[in-house]
């Protein structure tokens, strides 16, 4: 069934871990809420402590590691397992919900049927494709698989995903036309800044600046004389103004915002680590 002995052992480990995890779920359910909370809070605290300690503990000059670095790297594998489990849990929840919708003929149950059929079809060909790609279970790539997967992935999923995102452009256009009104000084500044950046960063900005006769290049002479008319005119080129806005006005503001977000994230992390957030049970 598998290529090597290592894979067989890996499969045993995975099955064992899955059994253990599925056995833990009813065990957790039997605990009273307080006990469940304490258990989860304890595990969360230990996990957080491990990550924080690995980051803050000094490292050996030669190896660049501390005693937690190697276990930290091994954790990457367990994180993949947790991600896979959460994906499995999400899939289970989604299918259960839509199966119930379809069976009980709830409102708009037809969409649930579409979802289930799409899900099963895509999953079937994706798994088949992955097995063929990796040469697992002796599965071979066939013309049917090639055609079906290309049709489903390249010509359906990718295109639908891209279309969904592209629709934002239409909403932005409509919203900008309806909502972007100059009702205050701040709104006026915002609008004119946005316009300069929008035109300045595209080739049209360069074209307009060239067309109205603004200097094309910054010469050495212009650099030495910042108040010369030529230098001032060069600075008024739309791409230069747009770059100045992005580098001189935007960057410090972004830095300030990120600093604030960082402090907020730190506070939030401490609350999560100490299980002070609600809904832990």
């Amino acid at each position: 069934m598998f290529d090597t002995r290592e894979n067989i052992w890996a499969a045993f480990w995975m099955i064992g871990a899955a059994i253990l995890i599925f056995a833990l779920i009813p065990l957790l359910q039997t605990l009273p809420p307080r006990g469940r909370y304490l258990l989860i809070a304890f595990v969360t605290f230990i996990a957080g402590l491990f990550f924080a300690a690995e980051f803050f503990l000094p490292v050996d000059e030669k190896t660049g590691k501390n005693f937690l670095t190697d276990p930290f790297q091994r954790l990457q594998g367990s994180l993949q397992v947790i991600t896979a489990l959460s994906l499995g849990l999400g899939t289970y929840g989604l299918i259960r919900l839509h199966l119930r919708n379809a069976v009980q003929r709830r409102a708009q149950w037809g969409y649930s049927i579409v979802l289930l059929v799409s899900f099963v079809t895509m999953a079937f060909f994706s798994v088949w494709n992955t097995l063929a790609e990796k040469g697992l279970l002796g599965v071979q790539r066939t013309p049917l698989l090639e055609r079906a997967f290309t049709l489903l992935f390249d010509y359906t999923l990718v295109q639908l995903d891209a279309t969904m995102f592209s629709l934002i452009a239409f909403y932005i256009f409509s919203a900008a036309y309806r909502a972007f009104r100059i009702r205050s000084v701040e709104a006026s500044i915002l609008m004119f800044t946005a316009m300069i950046v929008m035109i300045g960063i595209v080739p049209l900005g360069k074209f307009i600046s060239d067309s109205i006769g603004l200097p094309i290049m910054m010469t050495d002479e212009m650099r030495t004389n910042p108040f010369a008319l030529e230098t001032i005119l060069y600075s008024l080129r739309l791409p230069e103004v747009a770059n100045w806005i992005l580098n001189v006005l935007n960057a410090p503001v972004q830095r300030a915002i990120e600093f604030g977000v960082g402090i907020g994230a730190l506070a939030m992390a401490i609350r999560l680590w100490l299980s002070l957030e609600r809904g832990i049970t």
């Binding site: 256009f173 900008a176 036309y177 972007f180 009104r181 609008m191 929008m198 595209v202 080739p203 049209l204």
Partner: peptide, 23 residues
Amino acid sequence: FINAIQFSHVLIITFILLGNFAM
């Protein structure tokens, strides 16, 4: 793609200006 991007920018700006002029 660049023409689609830059002409969309121009269109959005034009319509924002039109909307404000109408208001």
